[in-house]
C-alpha cells in the first residue's frame, strides 16, 4: 500500500483528498458505516412495507405496480454504480489513489446485483403487462449489455495477478466501456425503431406516477442509494485489508 501523497507532497493533503490515505479512509468508514447500515435498512424496510402493504393498485396495471418500488431504484443504481466506477477509475488514472480504484472494484458486484434485480423485476412485470418475459426493447437490451460490461470488468480484475496492472487495465476498460455503453444505447434505440415503428412498449413511468406511489418510491430510492454506499464503503475496506495482507505476506516471503 503505497501512499504516494506522503512522498510526493511535503504537506499532508487535507479535506476530501486526505481520505485517499487508506488508514484515514478505514477510520472514516468505521465511524460512518454503522449509521449508514442503519439508515439504509430503515428506509428500505419503511419504503418497501409502505409500498407493498399501504399503496393502492393502479387502475390499469393492478397490483403489479408494486414492483416499481424495486424496479426503479435498482435500475437507477445499476447505471449509477457504473458511473461511480467510471469516476473512481478516472481518479485512479489521474491521481493514482489506490482507495479510488479499489472502490471501483468494490462497486462492480453491487452493480451486477442491481442490474440482475432490475432485469428480473422487469421480466416478471413485463409478463402480465406486455404478455412476454422479455422483449428486445431498447431499455431492456441496454441493461443486458450493461450486465455484460460488468461481467467483463470483473473478469478482467480476476484474471490479472499484479494489483496495479489490474487496476490500470480495468480502469482503461471502464473508460472505453463507458463510451461503448453509450454508443450501444444509441445503436439499440436505432435498431429497434428499425423493427417496430413507434414504441408500443413505452416504459416512461415517471410521467404518470401519482403521489401515492411517488413518496414510497422516493423512500425506496433513498434506501437503495444508502445501501449502495454502505456496501461500497464496506467492500472497499475489505479490498484495502486484502491488499495490505498481500503486501505484508510478500514482505515476509522476501525476508
Amino acid at each position: 500500500m503505497s501512499m504516494s501523497n506522503e512522498t510526493a507532497a511535503p504537506k499532508r493533503p487535507s479535506g476530501f483528498w486526505s481520505y485517499a490515505n487508506p488508514v484515514k479512509f478505514l477510520g472514516l468508514t468505521e465511524r460512518v458505516l454503522p449509521a449508514l447500515w442503519l439508515l439504509s435498512g430503515l428506509s428500505l424496510v419503511v419504503g418497501l412495507i409502505w409500498g407493498f402493504f399501504f399503496t393502492p393498485d393502479d387502475f390499469r396495471q393492478g397490483s403489479t405496480v408494486k414492483i416499481i418500488y424495486l424496479h426503479v431504484p435498482s435500475a437507477l443504481m445499476a447505471i449509477n454504480a457504473w458511473f461511480m466506477m467510471l469516476v473512481a477509475s478516472l481518479i485512479w488514472l489521474i491521481r493514482r489513489h489506490h482507495v479510488s480504484v479499489l472502490a471501483a472494484k468494490a462497486a462492480a458486484p453491487v452493480g451486477v446485483a442491481m442490474t440482475l434485480i432490475a432485469l428480473f423485476t422487469g421480466a416478471v412485470w413485463g409478463q402480465p403487462m406486455w404478455g412476454t418475459w422479455w422483449a428486445w426493447d431498447p431499455r431492456l437490451t441496454s441493461f443486458l449489455i450493461l450486465f455484460l460490461f460488468y461481467l467483463g470488468y470483473m473478469a478482467l480484475w480476476a484474471a490479472i495477478e499484479d494489483p496495479d496492472t489490474a487496476a490500470d487495465l480495468t480502469s482503461v476498460l471502464c473508460l472505453v466501456g463507458s463510451v461503448f455503453a453509450v454508443l450501444s444505447r444509441y445503436a439499440v434505440n436505432f435498431w429497434n425503431q428499425g423493427l417496430h415503428q413507434g414504441a408500443s412498449l413505452s416504459l416512461d413511468k415517471e410521467e404518470n406516477v401519482a403521489d401515492v406511489f411517488y413518496f414510497p418510491l422516493l423512500v425506496c430510492i433513498a434506501g437503495f442509494v444508502l445501501l449502495f454506499f454502505a456496501l461500497v464503503l464496506y467492500r472497499t475496506g475489505t479490498e484495502i485489508r486484502l491488499r495490505r495482507a498481500r503486501a505484508l505476506l510478500a514482505r515476509e516471503a522476501r525476508a
Partner: peptide, 14 residues
C-alpha cells in the same frame, strides 16, 4: 389479485 405470482416473486427474488 391475479398478479400475486408476479409481485411476490419480484419481491422475493429481489
Amino acid at each position: 389479485g391475479k398478479y400475486a405470482d408476479a409481485v411476490l416473486s419480484a419481491y422475493g427474488v429481489s
